[in-house]
Nucleic acid binder design. Structure first.
Lengths: 157, 157
DNA sequence: GTGGGTGCAAAGTGTTTGCAAGTGT
DNA sequence: ACACTTGCAAACACTTTGCACCCAC
């Protein structure tokens, strides 16, 4: 579904590097291609592992140094779900205001958007005298219905 | 305002310990009294510092070992605002569904509650086939209006 | 008395950084 | 060539844990 969007994102990021006079190295290319060839959320460690399949010379340091560039470019979103590592979301540019429900049983993460929610958030913030820069709604839940349908995989990842 | 609620919370926690056959030591007493004598959010390190004023024998290890008990008891809420340390909120029992706006400029945290928000969240979750266990809305914002009123303290802490 | 609790310091974990060598432009 | 990048390993910041001693019950 998102093949075109993904290669567009890759393109955008390479432009972003150019504009900042940053170099397009083989390692960065491998990382960027990895990021924008998946729809999945990932951790820094996963990104390292996957990127190394494309270019085994990619180091942990380079991954950690590239992630801030990706988030700064606005194409990837950094999230915190209360685990001790951060989770990155490559779908950010397409859906900048999506929220997440996490199943506490199987760690499944489902994204959703809601205009009503956004409107309400802006309203509340304005009443409190703030200007919203970003919002993040995190709902921890159990997907009981999914379990009944056999879709909740307790084994986690 | 919350003096009665706070000593009630302390009481509840001591009961919680009893029920689990855990001991009420001087160190735990110092930590608990510290927690429930403030309205402020705090970090583990701050809790250590404050607790040591009551009992200098409190160690970092004991603080870190007591915090999970406090959250397990439901009287304190653990939160993650994307910093590299966790923030604890002793107001949880009184207002279990409050949300937070963080001013990115001065790190000020403002709590708020909204019934409409809760209703909306539950509705969305149900539609997606989840049963909500907890929700956490975090809004990052800038308190420009507050600055105009002189209430935004850029110096942070 | 005994099983849980404590302080200490060492170990862990995810992430950042100093440095010398390498490389895109 | 020059400045930006890299890999490595050491450094970091926060949190957890092994151990021998201690103490609430």
């Amino acid at each position: 579904m998102a093949d075109l969007e993904r290669s567009a994102a890759k393109e955008k990021f390479l432009n972003f590097l150019e504009q900042k006079n940053l170099r397009i190295t083989n390692q960065r290319r491998a990382i960027v291609e990895t990021v924008f060839s998946t729809d999945q959320h990932f951790t820094a460690e996963q990104l390292l592992e996957w990127s190394r399949k494309r270019d085994s010379s990619v180091s942990r340091a380079t991954v950690y140094r590239t992630l801030p560039l990706l988030t700064e470019s606005g194409l990837v979103h950094e999230m915190d779900f209360g685990k001790d590592y951060k989770i990155y979301d490559p779908n950010y540019a397409d859906h900048p205001n999506h929220n997440h429900i996490i199943c506490d049983d199987c760690d499944k993460i489902v994204e959703f958007e809601s205009e009503r929610l956004e409107t309400l958030e802006n309203e509340i913030s304005q009443n409190l005298g703030f200007t919203v820069k970003s919002q993040q709604l995190r709902i921890n839940a159990s997907c009981e219905d999914m379990k009944k349908l056999g879709a909740c995989n307790k084994k986690g990842h």
